[in-house]
Simulated scan of single mutants.
Amino acid sequence: MALKLTARQSQILTLIRQAITHTGRPPTRAEIAHELGFRSTNAAEDHLRALERKGYVHLSAGTSRGIQLVQASPADTAHPVTEPASLPFRLLASARELLVPIIGHVAAGHPILAAEHIEREVPVAAQLFTAQPDYLLRVRGSSMCNAGILDGDLLAVRSTREAHHGQIVVARLGDDVTVKRLEQQGSHLRLLPENPDFTPIVIGPGDDFAIEGLAVGLIRTTPLH
């Protein structure tokens, strides 16, 4: 008999079941972290390992979606697994559209996907993007205008802590969140604007710096002239 689950483990198990039902595949660790408001994928991984130890899932190494459900009765859980409205998986049943939150102003020190930052959720066609986005970030300012990213545009962002030289990233530096192109030369990092009126940001070894996500597409909100 499978061991009893905590409330959070039951939520994650429900999320996995919803994802498989709606999309035919399990969620990634990043998607679980996104849905449940974890600050990193490590928390999602810890809960998945606990679910595996308790006999509810099997995890396959080397693949981001390597989560297989193991049959277990909900009666075995301390918190029965249900389908609460508070945990919608962000793919519509058609699997052709994504229901993606629009993130407006990000308050200092708060996670980007905190509830208070979400203006609303909008359906968008999945094929618009190079990878599935976790949110649309409303661009503020003109520092990336030469890359075609204009004030008011919606930048499609996939949540990740990893990025490579030359990629356009959403980064957190101290209490500020910014969109810039990452320059990485060995251990030296800079955030480069795409506008000569702005100065590159040099990342020092003691700076409070983190990659929040990668740009995977753009929705233009202003008319072409």
Score class of each variant (00 low, 15 high):
1 M>A: 09
6 T>N: 03
6 T>G: 12
6 T>S: 15
18 Q>Y: 02
18 Q>D: 13
20 I>F: 03
23 T>Q: 08
24 G>Q: 08
24 G>T: 05
25 R>S: 10
32 I>H: 10
34 H>Y: 13
36 L>T: 09
38 F>W: 09
38 F>L: 04
45 E>N: 13
48 L>H: 03
54 K>G: 00
55 G>K: 03
56 Y>P: 01
60 S>R: 15
61 A>S: 15
61 A>F: 11
61 A>I: 11
62 G>A: 11
70 V>H: 03
74 P>L: 00
75 A>E: 10
78 A>S: 10
84 P>G: 00
85 A>W: 02
86 S>Q: 11
88 P>Y: 01
90 R>F: 02
90 R>K: 13
91 L>H: 10
92 L>C: 05
93 A>T: 01
94 S>P: 05
94 S>Q: 05
98 L>Y: 03
100 V>L: 10
103 I>H: 00
107 A>S: 12
111 P>G: 06
113 L>F: 08
122 V>P: 02
123 P>E: 07
128 L>G: 06
130 T>E: 13
137 L>A: 14
140 R>K: 14
141 G>Y: 13
141 G>K: 12
142 S>F: 09
143 S>Y: 11
143 S>D: 11
146 N>M: 12
152 G>E: 00
153 D>F: 03
158 R>D: 01
159 S>H: 13
164 H>F: 08
167 Q>Y: 05
168 I>L: 03
172 R>I: 06
174 G>F: 06
175 D>G: 12
176 D>A: 15
179 V>C: 13
179 V>F: 00
180 K>W: 06
182 L>E: 10
183 E>A: 14
184 Q>L: 14
188 H>P: 01
197 D>I: 12
198 F>N: 14
200 P>Y: 12
203 I>V: 15
205 P>A: 08
207 D>S: 09
207 D>H: 08
211 I>L: 06
211 I>F: 04
215 A>E: 01
217 G>H: 00
219 I>C: 07
220 R>W: 02
220 R>K: 14
221 T>P: 07
222 T>F: 05
222 T>S: 15
